[in-house]
Design a protein around this nucleic acid. Structure first.
Length: 532
RNA sequence: GGCGCUUUCGUCUAGCGGCUAGGACACAUGCCUCUCACGCAUGGAACACGGGUUCGAUUCCCGUAGGCGCUACCA
């Protein structure tokens, strides 16, 4: 016999307030895939004028990691994903930390047991393990539950005595076999499975007085009036169980609608994105740097790597969702809120393309005003052991910005330069702060532009520079341009070798003015002496 | 193994029965040859396979193969 378990077909979204939640468990830093799930929840909530709830699912006391909760909150603050209520945000549906809701869950577990939809089981982990070894593909379900130690096989009297005697137990959900369970998914359509393949899931553990994910999840979503459950595809297999739980409680009329998002996959190779991929390929898989309190291990974060939060949000939003062909891929949070559509989410897993992530950062970076780069540029310099003033740094940033998009290489070819991070600037700006210490004789630019007579010419040029009264870009131009014209010399490339040590850098007047007369002449003397 | 999801350029994807199958990243080539900001142009590159349904399938259905996930007293 087959009965359909289904809920209110098309729940009219205009009649029910949109309330969604992001509910991580504090077992470590937030994975970038989790960030995307939270982002989609945020976009959906904003678009529908709804609420986004932040709930902490800490029902596994053994895996709790101190600092994880604070980390997650800080990560979202940085990313600009705001919650309306929840842990640290307040609200009327609290408490929002599951470990603080023990009494609530106990009440609902009892309700299920009293209604005959769940039962006590006393099998120890060792006994279950033994059973699994003994019976191939053992599953705790209709076919096996009558052979186990539980309130279905033991007398009520005995069960009561065991519980009173402090024997540890779990509460299992009694799955009725042979029913077709329907999950209506906003992204995947209707998914059906037969309840016979489901096992009697543990809903509650007496050992730590806490429910498992499944029970807590359903009870909280119901009590917090969650309208849509937007989560990763790894939850799709347990969605039928959740539907059955809503039904067992009699809550099918207000059951949230489901949307299971495709997973983020490794950039190369098989499987889903993991921390190891980031280590191997050199990109972060966490939003913020994470210091593991147990191992002391440090994992890199997008923020510390020099990513802009808008770039991370933009990139993540497009991994598994796309607004269609008529739009630029550079989208602000506001535009994302406007355009987002759950039904346009793709259904297959998305490979994580960290090269494109860098391109997004490039796009946002070059749009920033000069001043915005200065703090991170300043940090960069201090890492290199260079002390300088914000004014000088701002000047360098300004000069570099002029050169960021294009530059002329040693052979006169114009090339496109791709600055994705402020830290990419160091090799391109080193010479502003550090004088050339040596000259590579193999360097093509130097070989081509430093001839036998060059030292003499540079000496002449240096003498001329001595006479420049106003050592600014304008002052230099006023004196040097006519002199170059007159003398017929082309000092530019050789001068560049003196001051930079290579065929790169900004306009020479800019550079000389930045360095000042003393440093400019010192560098020239050094080059004349060294290169001869 | 079982159950479920999934399959368009190398990657992210558009496409919702009739298109020279579009865009973005990446890649290649050319052009901008003194510099004030997402350079410009061009090019190569894809509908997993086999059956149906249909006048007509990338598009709908069924298989096969591949990919992904779940299969705990974890979430």
């Amino acid at each position: 016999m087959c009965t359909f378990v289904r809920y209110n077909e098309k729940l009219d979204m205009t009649e029910r307030k949109v309330r969604v939640r992001f509910a991580p468990s504090p077992t470590g830093p937030l994975h970038i895939g989790g960030v995307r799930t939270a982002l989609y929840n945020y976009l959906f909530a904003r678009q529908h004028g709804g609420d986004l709830v932040f709930r902490i699912e800490d029902t596994d006391s053994a895996r709790f990691v101190p600092g994880a909760e604070e980390y997650i909150i800080e990560a979202f603050r940085w990313l600009g994903i705001q919650f309306d209520e929840g842990v640290s945000f307040g609200g009327n549906y609290g408490p929002y930390r599951q470990s603080e809701r023990r009494e609530i869950y106990k009440q609902y577990v009892r309700q299920l047991v009293d209604a005959g939809r769940a039962y006590y089981a006393f099998d120890t982990p060792e006994e279950l393990e033994a059973k699994r070894r003994e019976v191939e593909n053992f599953q705790y379900d209709a076919s096996t539950r009558m052979q186990m130690r539980n309130s279905l096989t033991l007398s009520a009297d005995k069960v009561q005595r065991m519980i009173d005697g402090g024997e540890q137990y779990v509460v299992r959900f009694l799955i009725q076999p042979g029913r077709e369970v329907l999950v209506d998914d906003l992204i995947r359509g209707e998914v059906r499975i037969n309840s016979s393949i489901l096992d009697d899931k543990v809903l509650y553990k007496s050992a730590d007085q806490l429910p498992t994910y499944h029970l807590a999840n359903i009870v909280d979503d119901h009590l917090m009036e969650i309208s849509h459950v937007i989560r990763g595809e790894e939850w799709l297999p347990s969605a039928p169980l959740h539907v059955l739980l809503y039904e067992a409680f009699g809550w099918q009329d207000t059951m949230p609608r489901f949307a299971h998002l495709p997973l983020l996959l490794k950039p190369v190779g098989n499987g889903k994105l993991s921390k190891r991929d980031g280590d191997k390929l050199g990109f972060p898989v966490f939003p913020l740097e994470w210091h593991d309190p147990r191992t002391g291990e440090v994992s890199s974060g997008y923020r510390e790597k020099g990513y802009l939060p808008q770039a991370v949000v933009n990139f993540l939003a497009l991994l598994g969702w796309n607004p269609g062909n008529d739009h630029s891929e550079i989208l602000s949070m506001d535009e994302l809120v406007q355009l987002f559509d759950l039904e346009k989410c793709s259904r297959n897993g998305a490979r994580f393309d960290y090269v494109k992530a860098a391109w997004f950062n490039h796009q946002y970076l070059i749009q920033q005003p000069d001043e915005a780069w200065v703090p991170s540029f300043d940090r960069l310099l201090r890492e290199q052991g260079i002390e300088t003033t914000p004014e000088r740094e701002a000047e360098v940033v300004r000069m570099m910005k002029l050169k960021v998009v294009e530059y002329t290489d040693g052979e006169g070819n114009r090339k496109k330069r791709n600055i994705s991070f402020v830290s990419d600037l160091w090799p391109l700006t080193r010479f502003f702060f550090v004088a050339p210490e040596s000259f590579d004789p193999e360097d093509k630019f130097i070989r081509k532009n430093w001839k036998e007579q060059t030292a003499g010419e540079m000496q002449q040029f240096a003498d001329k520079l001595q006479s420049v009264a106003d050592f600014t870009v304008e002052g230099l131009r006023a004196v040097i341009d006519p002199w170059v014209e007159e003398s017929g010399l082309r000092p530019w490339n050789a001068w560049r070798i003196c001051l930079v040590g290579a065929g790169q850098g900004p306009d020479m007047y800019e550079l000389a003015a930045f360095l000042g007369r003393e440093e400019t002449l010192a560098r020239m003397q050094f080059a004349i002496k060294t290169l001869g």
